[in-house]
Design a protein around this nucleic acid. Sequence first.
DNA 1: CGCTAACCGAGACGGTACGTCCCGTCTTTAC
DNA 2: GTAAAGACGGGACGTACCGTCTCGGTTAGCG
Lengths: 178, 178, 178, 178
Amino acid sequence: VVRSREKVLRAALEELASAGYAGFAMESVAARAGVGRSTLYRHWSDRWELVTDALEVLNVQPTGQPSLPDAPRARVEQLLTHLSDVLLRPPVSGVVPALVHAAEQSEAVRDFFHAYSARRREALVTAVRAGVEAGVFREVDPELAADALSGAVFYRRLLTGRPVGAAEVPELVTTVLG
Amino acid sequence: VVRSREKVLRAALEELASAGYAGFAMESVAARAGVGRSTLYRHWSDRWELVTDALEVLNVQPTGQPSLPDAPRARVEQLLTHLSDVLLRPPVSGVVPALVHAAEQSEAVRDFFHAYSARRREALVTAVRAGVEAGVFREVDPELAADALSGAVFYRRLLTGRPVGAAEVPELVTTVLG
Amino acid sequence: VVRSREKVLRAALEELASAGYAGFAMESVAARAGVGRSTLYRHWSDRWELVTDALEVLNVQPTGQPSLPDAPRARVEQLLTHLSDVLLRPPVSGVVPALVHAAEQSEAVRDFFHAYSARRREALVTAVRAGVEAGVFREVDPELAADALSGAVFYRRLLTGRPVGAAEVPELVTTVLG
Amino acid sequence: VVRSREKVLRAALEELASAGYAGFAMESVAARAGVGRSTLYRHWSDRWELVTDALEVLNVQPTGQPSLPDAPRARVEQLLTHLSDVLLRPPVSGVVPALVHAAEQSEAVRDFFHAYSARRREALVTAVRAGVEAGVFREVDPELAADALSGAVFYRRLLTGRPVGAAEVPELVTTVLG
DNA sequence: CGCTAACCGAGACGGTACGTCCCGTCTTTAC
DNA sequence: GTAAAGACGGGACGTACCGTCTCGGTTAGCG
């Protein structure tokens, strides 16, 4: 009963990553999960609900976060490296572009996606602020600086063909934070 | 013959903006354009081809670019203001999220979208470099700085609920470029 | 489930009779039956399959056959009268010409149609043979004679404007069998 | 100008024979004839007109009829052999079933087809009558006997898998005419 | 002999039906 | 008695032809 739910959610993520949001087919999810289509509709009233629900899994997944270093610069670099890394590997790699789009269409997805992003952003803002207060970074608005840092990583991944690699992160941090 | 094409392309953009990429329906486009469904398939072999072709229109449209100011800072601010502005108003507002998603699915869309972004980015990089060389800005890598600036605008528009307003642009520029 | 099938088959026969084989439109059948088009394709993979399946109904229908008389001549006359009658009234009237044509195009239809004809022919051959053996008829090859009798009825119906009426049957029988 | 017409009519017959009446595609005819689709519609206002016009060609074709023998029995046998032969060879072989069907749908086709059949039938009736009057055949109604003879040939060709071969013709004639 | 008219092909146009795929709902079964 | 299977109506897909239409380009015949 519960294990079915999880099988389905896992299958839904796979499908989302492989087929994108358009082309996300309930039928495929059911097949992937080895489950009847009706079972899906029993637990999730429609496509969107399943998608958003599946994404909640991503929230929980990275609980096993590696401990962050204390030094602010290293901390910021690690957060950005992790972000850039996650954007390049399934399932997030395939899901984020789909979410960017889906967020425009569905309030539920938008809420989820913005909250998800906010959580990531918060960690970065905190690290930047710590660095600024410690005098390690330039005197910048931590929020805007965090937007610029995260933004650069997303921008390069989503709008250009050259995503930010781990090697470029220190340089990026220096560029924005000195 | 030619005017049909244009009617359709215009309708396709409307549809793309209003329904997104998923949910982009040939039938709707045909209806919007007051044209037979077969006419669409006569000129564009499938959905994607129509979409990418419609997007070319966006390339040409903004020819009437306002003359850029000479001062590097003003120049950068104007480019970012324009970017943030365009991201909030149809048709680009609706199309960009759709493109982010579609680019993952279709090579043709990806090529178009990356080229389109590259053109915008180039202008910004040039302006930043000029500022750096003139000693108006900090000593930064112009490319990374441009990624950070553009990225911040996109990030705030696509991943958060608070897009960058015109008023925030100077502050953003100062944050990154000093 | 079963009742849908029957509604559709009935509708298919109507359509076949009224529009012929060419012009037999799945959409019309669906509309006639008050059924979704997809329901048709769920049960029958294409047009032909539906047509041939609908025809099976004709096989079963005439179970309530009137008891045949014993006397060979009366028996032959009754079979031919029935044949000529059936060829003039829906649904067979409209379907047979369509079948003659369709049998040339589709092996499945051909098999069905030939089997259908063979059953009819068999009954006639048997009756003729009985008459020949009883000395009531001339000494003829029962098979060829049956072909000539059935053939005359079909010929007049399909290739001329004057189908064989019930009144002409005895004369026809006399002509061939003496 | 005139040669185009003939090319087209010949192509139309081919198409009719190979694709049947359903599936008769103007586009294929045009392609077969190496002619623009519009040329077809210039000379024949629609499908049916082209079909019926093409059939007129069949009327004229068999002018080079081999001289018929004088003896009534040989004459009847030759007519039937010819009939059975023609029913097995293109173009008539493919066209007749199509006509049987088309005649039900179109008055023009029906008129043509019945007239065509009537001409054939007339020849046979005459031969049978001559034989009856000469005392070579049994005392039968020549019309009904002709229907039975022709009918047997058509019946076997169209409704069974075993068309009447030349070898069976004499036996058939004996069966009906003694 | 040259001009004009007809006929030509090519192919765009709005339609209609095809057969496919998937949606979200509803019904039936069998465990 | 509930959950899997799967039938249902619906709607969009991309394909194939329909019959109509507008184009230039080429014959061909009449003046």
